[in-house]
Nucleic acid binder design. Structure first.
Lengths: 218, 218
DNA sequence: AAATTATGGATATTAACACTATCCGAGAGT
DNA sequence: ACTCTCGGATAGTGTTAATATCCATAATTT
């Protein structure tokens, strides 16, 4: 398969494919002649993965490069998992965070076992700081309830991972789950927010077209 | 308060404050003379909100502008909520999505009441499409379990909202909850993932420094 | 009061990012 | 033989979020 075909098979423009190859995101095809190369099914799959990570997962090209490299490496699964987490998280320096916020996160998650460098721990502390800086306070255990929801999701993640066999398949699932999981949860939360508030307030969100709800369609 | 003081109080550089004012994100100070203006506490609060939305919530300046405008407007709460959801979501066109994926999301969320245009519904369908395009399949109800977790979070969101009184306070909470909620959940999920996998696999994630876990510190 | 510093507003510049377009000389297709 | 297409290199585009610089006043120090 030549590049035009690869482009057609994935919907990614040729110029973009070349760009990904240059960026080290995608392997170049097998060169048969100085100016001919051949691409296979693996390239199609990889390109789909790249597009998913970038478009749906919102990763940068550099971030995608890192997680793909981790999948292809022979690092143990736990390390790939760490790389995936770090890559999707902003780089936060423990010293730039409010120690009190960190303590409160640790207290909130007491019983959980994680490293002090876990990107989620640091990011959660930053959210707590920002939340309070804008004058909000957690009156009804908002953080605690989010932690419970996060635990459910994490259990689902690990269960799903266990259906895969072999290091590479598992590594791929870890990366996809880490990246797309954020997008999936965010999406479902929005639907759930509308659902819950329509129940709670019995005020249609957009009265003028409430006849078009999904429920009403069926 | 003059600009230097405002800058000092919030940690935001003067040039950046000027940029936000130009962008319509922040109101200019009260002008006393052609080249003098005075800023108050409201400016400090607003600036903190802006920084939270941008830095922690990952919004663009334009997106922040839209949600702030929604807070300041006198639109009904439901409309502000809609704007917040749309603003944090990628603009997706129903016609660009796989109808089969949309149906499966609706089936997954049957019993939920939401509009067919809900940004979360569309985003979830896109995630489903991407998930399957990279060769994954949802073997253990991953999506379903995420939906349950999302429901818990949404209930927490609405409960938290009900502690606030008055349209503007509620509108602000809606926006902050919508924006920071994504970041919070993503963060807590990462911590939970490490927790669950350490339980499940009994393999320390980073053997060389497992003595530094949060649990061990206490 | 003179000298220095700071102010608000306008304009310009920077840096990162993700593409996208154009050239090129060398094969492939017909 | 003639056009099309290839891969690879280089340059250019559009967007975004700041930063930097200028300038004519004002405020502040001395």
């Amino acid at each position: 398969m030549k590049m035009a075909k690869l482009s057609e098979a994935t919907g990614v423009p040729v110029a973009t494919i070349k760009f990904y190859i240059r960026a080290g995101l995608l392997q170049g095809g097998e060169r048969s002649l100085p100016n001919q190369a051949d691409y296979g099914d693996a390239h199609v799959q990889r390109l789909r993965l790249i597009r998913g990570l970038i478009e749906v997962g919102g990763l940068t090209v550099a971030a995608s490069q890192r997680v793909i490299e981790a999948i292809d490496s022979d690092k143990p699964l736990a390390e790939t998992f760490e790389i995936a987490q770090q890559t999707v998280s902003d780089e936060l320096d423990q010293s730039s965070l409010d120690p009190a916020a960190l303590s409160r996160i640790d207290e909130l998650l007491s019983g959980w076992h994680y490293h002090s460098t876990n990107p989620g721990r640091l990011a959660a502390a930053r959210v707590l700081t920002a939340f309070e800086a804008v004058g909000q306070h957690d009156e009804r255990g908002w953080f605690k309830r989010y932690a419970e929801a996060a635990l459910l999701a994490a259990e689902a993640d690990v269960d799903e991972l266990e259906t895969r066999h072999g290091r590479e398949a598992q590594a791929e699932t870890v990366v996809i789950g880490t990246v797309l999981g954020d997008a999936l949860f965010a999406a479902l939360r929005r639907a759930a927010q509308e659902h819950v508030s329509s129940l709670r307030f019995s005020t249609p969100l957009t009265p003028e077209n409430s006849a078009e709800t999904v429920e009403d369609r069926s």
